[in-house]
């Protein structure tokens, strides 16, 4: 596997109508590592995350400038197909959002629409591996036909992770995946993220610096639409180069 960064962004500006939400963000995201995006609310970290799989396209007034290269391809090029892009880059949201269908149907949804399933055994295999990887298999193996919404919050979020994994992406974006969960469920998710790093590149937005320190190898700090600094997590937290980072991690802003 190559050592080159899987995502490189150059001078990314994002506008909502007349309002500029991101100013010239340039960042490299290394392969098979966890990168966390931190910063006070409204700093643009979620906006940045959502430009990577073009979820921002859903907002009519949103406009993205600059370059976001994934696997060496600018994803805002004309010939890029968002459907294919999003199959390659999975996403997990802030609040667990399982479909009002069975657990099985939830996991198999993505593979089904992408035509990855040829037989019933294919389906069963994908569901089992995905749920195993999401650490949920043992808890739900005997009740796959129950609705996904009947699970607890933490289980629901792991189901959403399983659902994202099932499509076999190489990158998973996580938008504050544990913010709606209790501490125990959060710990389970954090452990899971650490395991997933072996097979996936993960970018996680978090409002908790502790979480960033626990789960990620790289951290990027955003402030008022600027990428202030980025680097190895340990370094960034122990010897920040910018004063704003210093203020944020010491609790003076945010």
């Amino acid at each position: 596997m190559s050592k080159e960064p899987i995502i490189t962004t150059r001078n990314v500006d994002v506008f909502y109508g007349d309002k500029q939400a991101l100013n010239g963000v340039t960042l490299d995201v290394p392969r098979n590592k966890v990168t966390s995006l931190i910063g006070p609310s409204g700093c643009g970290k979620s906006t940045f995350l959502r430009s990577i799989n073009r979820m921002n396209d859903l907002v009519d007034i949103c406009r993205v400038e600059g370059e976001i290269m994934v696997e060496g391809k600018n994803i805002y090029d004309k010939d890029v197909d968002v459907v294919a892009l999003r199959a390659h880059i999975g996403m997990v949201f802030q609040k667990p959002n399982p479909f009002p269908k069975s657990i099985f149907e939830n996991v198999i949804y993505g593979p089904k629409i992408h035509g990855m399933i040829k037989s019933k055994s294919d389906a069963e295999e994908i569901v089992e591996t995905s749920l195993r990887r999401a650490g949920l298999w043992k808890e739900v193996a005997d009740r796959l036909q129950e609705p996904g919404t009947s699970l607890s919050g933490g289980q629901q979020q792991r189901l959403c992770i399983a659902r994202a994994i099932a499509v076999k992406p190489s990158i998973i974006l996580m938008d504050e995946p544990a913010s709606a969960l209790d501490p125990i469920a959060t710990a389970v998710i954090e452990e899971l993220i650490d395991e997933l790093r072996q097979n996936y590149t993960i970018i996680i937005v978090t409002h908790s610096m502790q979480q960033a320190a626990r789960v990620s190898q790289r951290t990027a700090f955003f402030h008022m639409g600027d990428l202030v600094e980025s680097g190895a997590t340990k370094e960034l937290f122990t010897s920040p180069r910018d004063e704003r980072t210093q203020n944020y991690i010491s609790g003076r802003i945010g």
């Binding site: 999003r86 390659h88 999975g90 949201f93 959002n97 479909f99 993505g110 994202a164």
Partner: peptide, 25 residues
């Protein structure tokens, strides 16, 4: 809209999202 985002985030087209997620819900 979280259901809409979940489906689109998985790479479903809008029509697939509507037919398989929104309308059933």
């Amino acid at each position: 809209s979280s259901l809409r985002e979940a489906s689109l985030g998985l790479g479903a087209t809008q029509a697939e999202t509507i037919k398989k997620v929104i309308v059933p819900a």
